[in-house]
Every structure is written in C-alpha cells, then in structure tokens.
Simulated scan of single mutants.
Amino acid sequence: MYRWKSRFAPLCLLAFASAAGAAAPMPPDPGIDGLMQRYDGQVPGAAVLVLKDGQPVFRRGYGLAVVEDGTPVTPATNFRLASVSKQFTAAAILLLAEDGRLSIDDPLKKWLPGLPAVADAMTLRHLLSHTSGLLDYEDLMDQHGDPADTRQVHDIDVLHLLEQENRTYFAPGSDYRYSNSGYALLALVVGKASGSDFASFLRQRIFLPLGMHATFAHQDGVDEVPERAYGYSEIDGRWQRTDQSTTSAVLGDGGIYSSLDDLARWDAALYDERLLRRASLRLAFSPATATPEPDVPHYGFGWRINGDMLWHSGESIGFRNVIVRYPKRKLTVIVLSNRNDPEPYPLALAIAKRWLDAKR
C-alpha cells in the first residue's frame, strides 16, 4: 500500500485556509497593470499571482478565458500548464521512490522493457534531468505518421514510436537535450510502479491531499476541467481558437490544467514536508546537469535552475505560462496565459524585480 503521511491532514487544511484567504479582493497595482496591459480587455488574457512570505500580495486576472462568450479570466481560471506540468511528473517519481516502489537510478527498461537496445543504459534519473538522449517524439510523429491524421497521441503512443527507433541523440548521461519524450515515458513509469494510471496517481497523491481540487491531468471523456480557459493564437490579425493539437493529450510532459489558487497550494508544499521529504525536494531543486541555455545554467528534476532562482515555462498551442520561485526570498511569481504570444517569462522577471529590489 502507499505510504500515506499523517502530516497531510493538518498541513493541507492550513494550505487550503491560506489559499482561501487569497480570495480576498486585491487592490490594483498600476505598475503590474501596466505590464499586463496587452492582456486586458476583449482578448485572450492572463492571470498573475505574486506570493511573498507565503501570502498573496498580488492576484488578478486579465482579459478573457473564453473569447467567444466573453468569460473573464479570474484567479480560479484553469489553464493548460504545458511544460510547467513536468514538476508534477518529477514529484510523482520522487513520491514513488519514497514509497520504495522504484529508484530514480532504475534502468528505464526495468519498467518499459519494449524499448530497443539503445535504451539499455538509460535510467529514470536521465529522463528526469533531460540527459537520456531520447529522440523527440514530435519529430517521430512527422516521420511515421500520416500528416492528414489529426487524432491525438497519448503517452503510450510516444512509447510505441520510441520502440521503433534504435538510435539516440547521444549516449545516455553524456549531454543535455530538453526532452518531452522522457517525461511522457516517466508518466508511464508512474502508472506501472503505482499500479494506477498517471492521472489518477497525481489526483490521489498530490492534488487532493494539497487541496488542489480543480487541478487535473486532463483526459477528454474522463474528467471535466472547471472554469477552463481555452487557448488562442493571433492569425491574420484576429484571435482564433487553437486549444488542442495532436500532442495535447500527452500527459507526462504537459497535460495538467491548474489555476493560480491551486498553484498557490503547490508552492506552499514546496517549502516543507507536507508532500515530499526534504531529501526529495533537494534532489528536485539541485543541479542535476549543466545546460547550454543562457537562462538555464542547470536543470534539476522538473525545474530550471539559475542561481537562487527556480523556474519553468510552459508553451503549447494557445498557451504560454511560467512559474518563477526565489525560495530564499520566499517570493513566487506565476503568470498563466491562454494565447500564443508573448512569452511571459520576461514579464514574471519584471514583476519579481519589484520585490527583489525592495529592502530585505
């Protein structure tokens, strides 16, 4: 059986109470409102949350979650997180390691034995840190698929594509290359090691214990995302709905929907042991590998690391998101948007700077 932690109940109630307190109206902030001006009005919008010392100091929605009927964005609006989802996939693996169900140094083929010989040396650690060398499944879809086929692929389809390819970009552990394929496979490992499916494991072991009741690894026909934002792209000067692509049903690399209010609960859990032990959090937040990317000197497990800053962006058709955390300053900025442009990372940094520049 899973090791349910007795400390969940009181701490989760605390987290829920804290987030419920966030529902109080926030005064306007001309500085942040100015930065977010292009998201305001009758256009696809965004939601912004600033947490300082565990409390919301700014929390506001801009623009529209559903353009067609004028539904506004609020702090409870649920956006597709895209690659911000990877931190939850990594947390699921770490929870199973704490349970003794797996080790992060397990060979990948212990769990997915149908992979070809080229995967013999790959471990779960390589997948978590993007050092596996796995081929990008999106490219394989173009090679093996029918361009006219608009059906969505799922995590298991990613596995089947990779089972046909006895080649990698590099030897496992020898280099870094950001890999959606690796996180899709990790979702399958979570399912096999837990005896559940990935979406149910996240819901039962992470979302519900933390009070993230409106957060789902979304599956059409299985769950309904409440207060859902739909994604849009600007095409020929008009906003057109581009909410789903053929890869939108792959869960492990980017299939979670969540809101500012639920992500506040998640952020709170990253400061203590209500979900993961301190040793597991250190693994997630410590540099596992160097990267060639200037804004990402290192990558941990589901987190980009730049000095004292932990962050991750998420981009998919019609959505652009980012979470930026400064744990030593107890400062977090989250920007979620349901549009293809602009990238919100510079906005989040500009918002964070206002508190970082303040006197300690």
Results as ranks from 00 to 15, higher is better:
238 R>N: 13
288 A>E: 13
309 M>Q: 13
101 R>A: 15
245 S>R: 14
126 H>I: 05
140 L>K: 10
155 D>C: 06
278 R>K: 06
89 T>R: 10
33 D>V: 05
48 V>D: 03
49 L>Q: 11
13 L>E: 13
285 F>E: 11
170 F>C: 11
94 L>I: 01
177 R>T: 09
91 A>N: 07
199 A>T: 05
166 N>I: 03
271 Y>A: 12
260 L>F: 05
7 R>G: 03
337 S>K: 01
261 D>V: 12
327 P>R: 12
129 S>L: 05
309 M>I: 10
78 N>G: 04
42 Q>M: 14
308 D>A: 15
235 I>F: 01
285 F>L: 12
157 D>C: 09
208 L>N: 14
102 L>K: 06
348 A>E: 07
208 L>M: 11
188 L>F: 01
33 D>Y: 05
150 T>P: 04
172 P>E: 01
19 A>F: 00
298 H>Q: 09
106 D>Q: 12
332 T>Y: 02
14 L>T: 13
332 T>N: 05
89 T>N: 10
322 V>N: 03
226 P>G: 12
196 S>L: 00
305 I>C: 09
305 I>R: 07
178 Y>F: 07
350 A>T: 14
122 M>L: 04
237 G>T: 08
206 I>M: 09
60 R>D: 04
155 D>Y: 04
223 D>G: 04
227 E>R: 13
80 R>C: 08
198 F>H: 08
311 W>A: 08
319 F>Y: 09
125 R>W: 00
210 L>M: 12
217 A>E: 11
44 P>M: 09
184 A>R: 07
261 D>K: 07
161 L>W: 03
219 Q>H: 04
187 A>G: 15
30 P>V: 12
125 R>Y: 03
8 F>L: 15
237 G>D: 07
42 Q>K: 15
18 S>L: 00
45 G>S: 14
340 N>T: 08
355 W>C: 05
8 F>M: 14
308 D>M: 08
90 A>R: 04
60 R>F: 02
152 Q>A: 14
180 N>H: 02
111 W>Y: 09
5 K>D: 00
98 E>Y: 10
81 L>G: 07
335 V>D: 01
39 Y>V: 08
103 S>H: 11
112 L>R: 13
22 A>W: 11
186 L>P: 02
323 I>C: 02
167 R>E: 00
202 L>T: 06
264 A>C: 15
17 A>I: 01
260 L>R: 08
154 H>P: 03
306 N>M: 00
13 L>M: 11
4 W>S: 13
186 L>M: 06
299 Y>W: 05
7 R>I: 11
238 R>A: 14
7 R>L: 11
67 V>C: 12
140 L>E: 06
341 D>L: 00
182 G>F: 02
314 G>L: 02
35 L>R: 15
25 P>N: 14
233 S>Q: 13
311 W>M: 01
172 P>M: 06
326 Y>E: 01
11 L>H: 13
265 R>D: 11
343 E>P: 02
197 D>Q: 07
